[in-house]
Design a protein around this nucleic acid. Structure first.
Lengths: 190, 190
DNA sequence: CGTTCAGTTGACTAAGGTCAATTCCCGTGG
DNA sequence: CCACGGGAATTGACCTTAGTCAACTGAACG
């Protein structure tokens, strides 16, 4: 995975050559078509993906309604961490919105790396978990404190490519409102 | 901090004596009265607290309205991780709801521990960050997918002591609804 | 007792949801 | 090149949920 290594060199700058190499080499590349699933509800998630290029979404189903949890585009990680850590069946679906090339590491390979007892590797794991925490804490705050319009404005400011690559009705499901409401929100702010 | 050590021995069972000792010894104990602050908006958060006994809440202010982010009771950690990691002024307030005895570790002492390059210590940090992530991811999901009644039911099921120790109008602010609405929600489910 | 403050209740308002109709956009086939 | 079909987006009318504001109840405490 030479290609992946040069990407990770950019992302994990503070880590050593050796650790980044070991990490990169543990991944395999795979191609997924638009509409294909990386993870389906009911299965235990045993992989972490890193998107080379493409777009994916995570969603949950509840009372026949779909709720989008997350969009992931190029150079982002994707997994069901909860299912992966607890080894319990996932209730998350991860599906491609575009054709996607993805690098995949299995839970077992990841644990092998942790088992090497390399401090730096644990630190990499900690850093990733900390970033995930910060991201989701921010999302919780926004859902608690901001109305639909404010959440939409934050989204288009922070993730400028999203609205260009993802249809509007999916953005609405991500914001927790209906496509009709999002249409009115957009009308209201322009 | 012999007392803290025996608590952490229970919580961090999978870690060695040495690591738990080092960790425990880095804390200092402090007493806070009801209404006192552990952290105020505008300051950089340089500490992590672990509550020996008592109750605290984290809240944000927006347009003069208070939004409660989190309650922490006995044996729970409390900090503004975001301010701590990024060394930026916090916009979070952490205040005692009851008189509280708390163990406190400073950011510097924590970093000293990380700098020891002890794999186990990094792993402890990773584990804590992973747990935090799972907790906040779950909260985001609930805010996105559940209505006020469902969120209240989950709360009283998962955190049974909370409603007994915390006044109802604070529970309402935590759920993101008004005290009046919570009153009606309770009427509706009983 | 009276004061205070949490909690409840009622009447009205606002934000967002629902359902149906319409318009827009884009790809495909004639 | 145009016409058509189908899904995305918009719009309108109405409904539901939660917010606002004000009045009232009730328990705790001096």
């Amino acid at each position: 995975m030479r290609e992946l290594k040069s990407i990770f060199d950019q992302i994990f700058r503070e880590f050593s050559e050796e650790v980044v190499s070991l990490f990169s080499e543990a991944f395999k590349q795979k191609g997924l078509k638009k509409g294909e699933y990386f993870l389906r509800e009911g299965r235990i998630c045993n992989h972490i993906g890193f998107i080379k290029n493409g777009a994916m979404m995570c969603y949950y189903l509840k009372d026949g309604k779909r709720y989008i949890d997350e969009f992931s585009l190029d150079y982002e990680f994707i997994t069901d961490y909860s299912s992966l850590l607890n080894q319990r069946p996932s209730n998350k679906n991860i599906q491609c919105i575009e054709g996607t090339e993805i690098f995949i590491i299995s839970k077992d390979k990841l644990n092998d790396l942790y088992k090497k007892n390399n401090v730096e590797f644990e630190r990499l794991g900690r850093t990733m978990a900390e970033q995930l925490y910060l991201q989701w804490h921010e999302k919780s705050k926004s859902l608690l404190m901001d109305n639909a319009t404010e959440r939409y404005i934050k989204l288009i400011e922070n993730r400028t490519e999203l609205p260009q690559r993802v249809p509007q009705y999916l953005i609405a499901e991500y914001l927790g409102i209906t496509p009709e409401s999002l249409s009115r929100v957009r009308k209201g702010i322009s």
